[in-house]
């Protein structure tokens, strides 16, 4: 069953005085099945960020529809959108977006507090997640006291704790060193192995090579896609690189 369906998605940005129009997404179609791990790749300006903002319900498209669990998020009312977002989506950002004035534990609790979950239940949910992510001993620390990798794991825990239908990750390894990035990607693999659907936007070949499927976006459309099939990470890495080369060549 498809958990996410994107049909004919269009987004046109108009400059302030209506002069120039920029087509960020022209006609985008794809779907994500439950339990999938999809990476979306594309160069800067290919419409990745626009797509992610629309999927996150932070921005409205000019045309087309986005179905999450069968519900069109484009038509959700403004007042419900935040609740919808925090109940159904989990976010992992490039720059972590942790709040400095909360301990790691409180950062993870933030969406639950917004949902109105009881403190006891929050603690019950917290334990298995942070233990799995290996940050169980850091809960009393503050974001400025821990490393980048640990911060990003905290962000992952925050995304997981609401048990969302879909995790949206925006360049999750962008601000990490290679070792921390590797650890995080392995973690994503494990989480996905337990059935969590993940959609990751990245331009790192290394990151994309951990996914089960890779979509390439160019000029606001899906240009190509790769399935892992039986390939190892390294083999997929080579295939992605080749595709990117072709993509770059096509641009000329």
């Amino acid at each position: 069953m498809a958990i996410l369906e994107v049909h004919n998605l269009k987004k046109v940005y108009t400059t302030r005085f209506g002069g120039n129009q920029v087509q960020a997404l022209s006609n985008l179609n794809f779907s994500v099945e439950e339990g999938e791990y999809v990476a979306i790749m594309g160069e800067s300006g290919s419409g990745k960020t626009t797509l992610l903002n629309i999927l996150a319900a932070l921005d409205k498209p000019t045309g087309g529809e986005v179905l999450l669990g069968g519900r069109n998020i484009v038509t959700i009312k403004e007042r419900e959108i935040s609740a919808f977002r925090r109940d159904n989506l989990g976010f992992v950002f490039q720059d972590f977006n942790l709040l400095d004035n909360f301990s790691l534990q409180d950062n993870i609790f933030l969406p639950l507090v917004l949902q109105g979950v009881k403190p006891r239940e929050m603690e019950e949910r917290l334990k298995p997640i942070v233990d799995k992510l290996g940050i169980g001993s850091l809960m009393k620390k503050y974001p400025y006291e821990v490393s980048g990798g640990q911060k990003q794991r905290t962000a992952v825990a925050r995304a997981l704790i609401t048990r969302p239908q879909l995790i949206l990750a925006d360049e999750p390894t962008g601000a990490l060193d290679s070792k921390a990035a590797h650890g995080l990607l392995r973690m994503f693999g494990e989480i996905n192995g337990e059935g969590q659907t993940i959609l990751m936007v990245t331009h790192s070949v290394k990151a994309a090579s951990h996914a089960k499927r890779v979509l390439f976006i160019k000029d606001g459309e899906v240009f190509h896609q790769l399935y892992r099939g039986g390939l190892s990470n390294e083999e997929l890495y080579v295939k992605i690189s080749d595709t990117l080369t072709v993509l770059a060549a096509a641009a000329v």
Binding site: S82, A83, L98, N101
Partner: peptide
């Protein structure tokens, strides 16, 4: 910045 983050994490603008 703090409020921008809170909104991204799922706080509505009203909240």
């Amino acid at each position: 910045e703090r409020f921008a983050i809170m909104e991204k994490v799922g706080m509505s603008s009203q909240e």
